[in-house]
């Protein structure tokens, strides 16, 4: 049974997307990589649940899809 939410769950999808890209706008590729890493670690801990995290990793790793 899948646990990862893949339907819309944002309270404000547009605002999130804009702040994500804004946060990266002025950054070098190296700093962007750092920011992404920090964001993943923070969000992963917030989710916590191993199954949800592994399902997300699994989908993320399917680069050709």
């Amino acid at each position: 049974m899948s646990k990862l939410i893949t339907d819309n769950h944002f309270s404000d999808a547009d605002a999130f997307y804009a702040s994500l890209t804004d946060a990266h706008r002025e950054l070098t590729p190296e700093d962007s990589e750092r920011l992404n890493a920090r964001l993943i670690l923070l969000l992963a801990n917030h989710i916590g649940d191993k199954q949800v995290l592994f399902e997300a990793l699994d989908i993320a790793a399917q680069l050709e899809q």
């Binding site: 990589e33 750092r34 890493a37 920090r38 993943i40 670690l41 923070l42």
Partner: peptide, 10 residues
């Protein structure tokens, strides 16, 4: 290394 270093900073 990026993940390792950011983990340490956080």
């Amino acid at each position: 290394r990026v993940f390792r270093d950011e983990t340490l900073r956080l």
